[in-house]
Amino acid sequence: MRIGELSSTSGVPVSTIKYYLREGLLPTGRLTSANQAQYDEHHLRRLTLVRALVDVGGLSIATVREVLDAVDASDSGAVRMVHDGITAVPATDPDAAAEQEASSFLTRCGLPYEPDNPATRSLVAVIATARRLGHPHFTDQLGVYADACRRIAEADVDRVMRHSSVEDVLEGVVVGTVLGDAAMVALRRLAQLQEYRRQSGPR
Rank of each mutant, 00 (worst) to 15 (best):
G29Q: 05
G29L: 00
T32M: 08
S33R: 03
N35D: 11
Q36Y: 13
A37M: 05
A37Q: 10
Q38M: 14
Y39P: 00
Y39C: 02
D40E: 09
D40M: 11
E41K: 14
H42M: 10
H42R: 15
L44V: 05
L44T: 03
R45A: 13
R45D: 08
R45V: 10
R45K: 15
R46D: 04
L47M: 04
T48Q: 15
T48S: 14
L49C: 12
V50E: 10
R51M: 07
L53I: 01
V54R: 13
D55I: 00
V56S: 02
V56Q: 01
V56N: 01
G58D: 08
G58F: 06
L59N: 01
A62C: 03
A62T: 09
T63I: 08
T63A: 04
V64Y: 05
L68N: 06
V71E: 11
S76L: 10
G77L: 03
V79L: 06
V79M: 07
M81C: 04
M81P: 03
V82R: 00
V82H: 00
V82G: 05
V82K: 05
H83R: 13
T87M: 12
A88W: 08
P90A: 06
A91W: 03
T92K: 10
T92M: 15
D93G: 12
P94F: 01
P94W: 05
P94H: 05
D95Q: 04
A96L: 04
A96C: 02
A98C: 03
Q100W: 00
E101R: 07
S103C: 10
S103H: 15
S103V: 13
S104D: 15
F105W: 14
F105V: 02
R108W: 10
C109D: 05
Y113K: 03
Y113G: 06
Y113C: 01
D116S: 06
N117W: 14
P118Q: 08
A119Y: 10
T120Q: 05
T120Y: 07
R121P: 01
S122A: 14
S122D: 15
V124W: 03
V124R: 00
A125D: 09
V126S: 12
I127F: 06
A128K: 03
A128H: 11
A130D: 13
R131K: 11
R131Y: 12
F138C: 15
F138I: 15
D140Y: 10
Q141L: 14
G143P: 11
Y145N: 11
D147S: 12
R150F: 09
I152G: 06
I152F: 14
E154A: 15
